[in-house]
Write a protein that binds this DNA or RNA. Structure first.
Lengths: 220, 220
DNA sequence: CTCTCTATCTTGACAGCGTCAAGATTATCT
DNA sequence: AGATAATCTTGACGCTGTCAAGATAGAGAG
């Protein structure tokens, strides 16, 4: 569960135990510690001071790397987007020239990411992007993910999977459908009765089926 | 803008100016003041103490009516859901026996509610419902809204507007599509370039069109 | 009308929070 | 080696959610 590669990111490389005045890798550590708190204690327990303490530094140390709390959250959101991006890239490679499979697999991965990391998912799309200028890395990775989806939509159109011809509209529509479903589930809006009869994945595949002209199966 | 009916809710009925030890209508006042803060200063400025101050009572007065901050937020979410419910009811009545119109109009109203009250929208669907047992009123109104959507979906199916036959699945799918689109827009996830070429309403209608077998126009 | 009970509200306190200023420490570059 | 800049600590500020104790007032019983 606690593999070494993650550990190496959490602590400075040279000497893990000996406490030094200069941490050596504090910025990344803070991001990873923040995500860890998110996973273990939830979004309500995420405070700058706790992140600092768990990283082994004083309460004001983060301000050497982040302008304020929002900046740390933006960095965590960037990390979330990056994880999605890496998974998407992998899927595109594995299912090259199979756009429908790419669409279904990336959608399922999006769902899984949300179910596995509910609070990181929330933060990833929490809208820190508002002040675009302040977080260029976040804006960039967001656009890269959208570009991937847009590309998939375009290829699906070429295979006649969709009626529509506008790739931007189609990409937004697909993203919204998947994102909305995941959001509703994570926020406990879907009644227990409905969820008892329909797994999240089934709900997702149903939604995708509604939008495509062909039959979409789990393919699993 | 500041009509009398709302004002009557904000302050005790008997005497508006004279300060009394017992407020008289504090519970509702706190909810409305909270929503007002949400609209004017945003979700980050919403604190129990500020709500209390703006309502003219001491900082601990709210605890006579709400167990904690989450309870007040749950009440505000209930108010948000109630506003949506009332609008939905009105639409259903006006467009009786026109299920497709009901679907499009309620979807547009959902979008408008989000665009007009971004932070109230966020709170309304923020997932306070998690601990279902604690907020029965919120669960109830949530289910009533879902029931409305389910009913509309059912009637649309009867008219052959959708392929699918499962009303629950269809309702969740439609809700997710609309909710996701509004969420993405409110959280600044849709790039400015895409938004420049496509209004929120256009995006919504496109998504609905993707799901139906018939052409959906604005009808406005 | 008065007494009692209970709901409502105030005051005061506490720890935890985000943030800033001042100073200490260490890495980096000339 | 010495200067400069980056990094981290310490201490302080006001704000927050929450609780305990007490003040006030409305409601019902006699």
């Amino acid at each position: 569960m606690l593999n070494l590669s993650k550990y190496a990111v959490l602590y400075p490389v040279k000497n893990m135990k000996q406490k030094k005045y200069h941490h050596g890798n504090l910025k990344n550590t803070l991001i990873q510690v923040g995500i860890k708190i998110l996973a273990e204690e939830g979004i309500g327990a995420l405070s700058l001071r706790k992140v600092a303490k768990n990283a082994g530094v004083s309460h004001a140390a983060p301000y050497a790397h982040f302008k304020d709390k929002r900046a740390l959250i933006a960095a965590m959101a960037t990390e979330g987007h990056t994880r999605i991006y890496e998974k998407n890239s992998e899927i595109i490679e594995v299912f090259a020239d199979m756009p429908l499979q790419q669409l279904v697999k990336t959608a399922c991965a999006y769902l899984d990411f949300g179910m596995d990391n509910p609070d990181l998912f929330r933060i990833t799309f929490s809208g820190v992007v508002e002040r675009e200028r302040d977080y260029p890395a976040l804006v960039e990775i967001t656009q890269k993910n959208f570009e991937i989806l847009r590309e998939i939509a375009l290829r699906c159109q070429a295979e006649g999977i969709f009626d529509a011809d506008d790739a931007d509209l189609l990409a937004v529509s697909l993203w919204g459908t998947v994102h909305g479903l995941v959001s509703l589930i994570l926020q406990g809006q879907i009644s227990g009765e409905v969820l008892a009869h329909n797994s999240p994945r089934k709900l997702l595949l149903f939604s995708l089926n509604q939008m495509t002209r062909v039959e979409v199966g789990a393919g699993l």
